[in-house]
């Protein structure tokens, strides 16, 4: 199972890649494996204000649907449209092409509260 060391993680299996005041968000390799074949993704609207741990996206397999929570509060500034037409990309490349959205976060403190790669490994 792949858990890149340079990312921050949430207990609910989302990862974030911080760059300035923006964070890219996706689901972990562990999560995509558990969900199995992803067939559909719903993404938040651009511009939407979100609170930490609020469900903002949905990932669906044939027989189940999972809420995806934003790890950070702020504004959705960009979404990855590619996963809408090719949802399997989330299975194939959860940390790169299969990311979900970018959030412009407000509170640096929330970043500190996220898990490190080692902590996340212990969790799963």
């Amino acid at each position: 199972m792949n858990v890149p060391g340079d990312l921050k993680y949430a207990k609910t299996h989302e990862w974030t890649r911080i760059s300035g005041n923006k964070a890219k968000v996706g689901i972990t390799d562990f999560a995509q494996h558990e969900i199995t074949d992803i067939v559909h993704v719903e993404l938040p609207e651009i511009g939407k204000q979100v609170r930490r741990e609020q469900p903002v996206a949905v990932i669906e397999s044939v027989k189940s649907a999972f809420d995806i929570y934003t790890p950070l509060s702020g504004k959705i500034v960009e979404v990855n449209d590619i996963v809408l037409s090719t949802p399997e990309i989330v299975n194939k490349s959860p940390y790169e092409e299969g990311y979900l959205f970018t959030v412009e976060f407000e509170n640096e403190k929330e970043v500190e509260n996220l898990l490190s790669a080692d902590d996340y490994k212990k969790l799963v």
Partner: peptide
């Protein structure tokens, strides 16, 4: 028919 591919049907 044999076992059907539900994943592709939804994707």
């Amino acid at each position: 028919v044999g076992r059907l591919n539900e994943v592709e049907a939804a994707r």
